[in-house]
């Protein structure tokens, strides 16, 4: 390295052997600081490019009928992604019914009794589970539900999304509960409240804002998943609110529109992408507000 420092041996800190002139060191410092700042700029370019294009190209498609109508065949004007929006909300709702209790429950376990051996194993497993590719979870949901029922279904998609929600929720819930001051718990116990009621109505009650925040973020992430839905919920050209029937989703719809060769479907892909980002952004915004209210309380 330029600054005339050498690594003596692995594991030891570098020891300066010969220090260059003040000017040279200052220049090196300046150049490296500039490079790191450039890294920040470089990282943000794609973000702004994505956001700008989704908004500028998607805004033309947005209209009342885009939100409420069924998809139109190629070449026909109009049509919308109403069934896909409803399908996404439906599946994410179903997934929340399964995933929220399991994820939050596991988080409560980690916070309340997570200092033992089982706790460490569960915590590590949750961390590792968070890195499992979503497509693998899709295959699992296919094996668990689609294959035995011989039918693609919203339920299968929801199960896949629920499995994806559990690990992040568990870790976030634990963090939120551990933020609750010990004195609150102790005060409740000192008043003779049983430990389980203390956990539920004092500690969890205090952490509620944080839990809502974590839950909404998990839901937002689930809404953006595509891969595990491709061969579980499949797709559907029509409205569907039956858990055992194939169901459209915004993400799969974006995918199908994007890889099609038709120009007007590309426009619809941008429009659907804008819908999806509005949905996810809205959920994240509410999550942020929930977290903000907690910190004020």
């Amino acid at each position: 390295m330029n600054m005339a420092m050498t690594n003596v041996a692995a594991g030891q800190y570098a020891i300066p052997r010969r220090v260059g002139s003040h000017r040279a060191r200052a220049v090196t410092n300046g150049v490296m600081t500039g490079l790191c700042a450039a890294a920040v700029a470089l990282a943000l370019v794609p973000l702004f490019s994505v956001l700008w294009l989704v908004v500028s190209k998607g805004i033309h498609s947005l209209s009342l009928s885009f939100f409420t109508k069924l998809p139109a065949p190629v070449g026909e004007l109009g049509g919308g992604v109403g069934n896909a929006i409803v399908g996404t909300l439906f599946m994410v709702g179903l997934a929340s019914c399964i995933g929220l209790p399991l994820g939050v429950g596991a988080g409560i376990f980690l916070a309340e009794r997570g200092d033992g051996k089982l706790g460490h194993v569960v915590r590590f497993t949750a961390e590792v589970l968070a890195g499992v590719p979503s497509i693998v979870v899709g295959v699992v949901a296919y094996g668990l539900i689609v294959l035995p029922m011989r039918h693609f279904s919203a339920m299968a998609g929801a199960v896949a999304l629920a499995i994806l929600m559990i690990p992040t929720l568990a870790r976030a819930t634990e963090e939120m509960i551990r933020l609750v001051p010990r004195s609150l718990r102790e005060a409740s116990l000192a008043l003779g409240v049983p430990a389980w009621r203390t956990s539920l109505s004092v500690v969890l009650r205090t952490a509620l804002g944080g839990l809502i925040n974590a839950a909404l973020l998990a839901i937002a992430r689930a809404a953006g998943e595509t891969a595990p839905l491709l061969f579980t919920a499949l797709n559907n050209q029509y409205w569907n609110l039956h858990p055992l029937q194939p169901t459209a989703s915004l993400t799969v719809q974006i995918y199908n529109y994007a890889i099609s060769p038709y120009e007007d479907w590309h426009d619809k892909a941008w429009g659907a992408a804008l819908c999806l980002l509005i949905l996810i952004g809205g959920l994240s915004l509410i999550a942020r507000l929930a977290a903000g209210r907690r910190s004020q309380a």
């Binding site: 990282a43 973000l47 994505v50 294009l53 953006g224 595509t226 974006i254 995918y255 892909a269």
Partner: peptide, 20 residues
């Protein structure tokens, strides 16, 4: 902004990659 970048769904990046 890095948090937002992490929250953008994969399929939207795919669309952006394909078109841009």
């Amino acid at each position: 902004f890095v948090e937002i970048l992490a929250a953008i769904p994969s399929v939207v990046f795919g669309l952006w990659g394909l078109m841009v």
